[in-house]
């Protein structure tokens, strides 16, 4: 790590002002940031630590309209939260519980998980200069080693979005609140991720100094269930090769609402609206799930080394739908 000034704000406003300064970065637990600093792919002059604001920024509470999860809530707290025990939010709970390792989950925060830098091995090494890192003319993975990279919706950079929680929260209809210039603003979660995830775009759409404050989950009505599944190469700590978060509403044995969101296959978490729509009005069953899984990867364009992820992606959608309607 290069030297930096460590800033401890007393209020969100102080944090915002400090983080707006050129080169300043915000940190929660620092799980992602410390790794980037150790790799020396970044050298911010100032690191603004949000942990002193835990009072305001951590915790899960019912705010009347639904659940509010503070951005500094740890992944472990989410995985174990009583408020998330119901079937509607299974996806969120499970996605949090599968992330990284128990040791990481004890510190890693919701905000950090959603906003972390992509885990591409070219991007994360100071030895390489790539387009997304702002240090090179091309995406090195596109024509290099790309077995773990995008198969869907990529442009000039084939990174995958690394967050487990993003697809889960999207599938559950989450919104997010940020703090910027003295105001709190609330938007649908999809707005946190760029529409066109080109190399120039960051993993998220937050402005400099904008602070993610909380995620909101709507109150479920009716028989709403969700789950999250991922494929990986081993059960102990591994990155997902593909992930699927699904939420369905069942009424009298028929699917009346559905959402399917893919993770680890595209530079952003990918809602698959058409695939989800194909389930509406159907009774749960393997034929419907297989069709939805097929539709979920429609338009995919795998790279030289990752066509296998297509099969995995279909399998995981099918598996998640099977699980959630069981």
């Amino acid at each position: 790590m290069k030297p930096f000034t460590y800033v401890l704000p007393h209020t969100l406003a102080e944090a915002h002002t400090a983080a707006k300064k050129a080169g300043a970065v915000l940190k929660g637990a620092g799980i992602d940031l410390v790794d980037r600093l150790k790799e020396r792919i970044e050298a911010p002059p100032e690191v603004v630590n949000l942990l002193p604001l835990k009072n305001d920024l951590a915790g899960i509470a019912d705010d009347g309209g639904g659940l509010r999860i503070g951005a500094l809530t740890t992944l472990r707290q989410i995985a174990e939260a009583a408020a998330l025990q119901g079937p509607a939010f299974g996806a969120v709970r499970i996605a949090a519980g599968l992330t990284a390792t128990p040791l990481v989950r004890n510190r890693a925060t919701l905000g950090g998980n959603l906003l972390q830098l992509a885990r591409c091995w070219y991007l994360r090494s100071a030895a390489f200069g790539c387009l997304h890192g702002g240090k090179g003319p091309t995406c090195l993975a596109m024509t290099g080693e790309n077995r773990y990279h995008s198969i869907l919706g990529w442009h000039d950079c084939v990174r995958v979005h690394p967050s487990n929680l993003a697809p889960a929260l999207l599938a559950c209809g989450a919104e997010y609140t940020t703090f910027f210039d003295g105001k709190q603003e609330r938007r649908p979660l999809a707005a946190l991720f760029p529409d066109e995830p080109t190399a120039q775009k960051a993993e998220h759409t937050l402005r400099d100094g904008e602070i993610l404050v909380a995620i909101h989950l709507p109150k479920p009505s009716g028989d709403v269930r969700s789950t999250y599944q991922e494929t990986r190469e081993k059960d102990s700590f591994d990155w997902a090769t593909t992930a699927a978060a699904v939420q369905v509403t069942l009424q009298d044995g028929t699917i009346t609402d559905a959402s399917i969101v893919l993770g680890a296959v595209s530079p952003v978490p990918r809602p698959r609206a058409e695939a989800a729509k194909s389930l509406i009005g159907k009774k749960p069953g393997d034929a419907a799930f297989l069709k939805a899984a097929e539709m979920a990867v429609a338009g995919a364009s795998p790279l030289s080394q990752n066509a296998y992820k297509l099969s995995l992606c279909k399998a995981i959608v099918r598996a998640a739908l099977t699980e959630v309607t069981r």
């Binding site: 519980g97 599944q229 991922e230």
Partner: peptide
């Protein structure tokens, strides 16, 4: 593919 983690005790939370 992985299973969700085994049930966590509420008390820990």
């Amino acid at each position: 593919m992985t299973k969700p983690p085994p049930d966590q005790p509420q008390e820990a939370f």
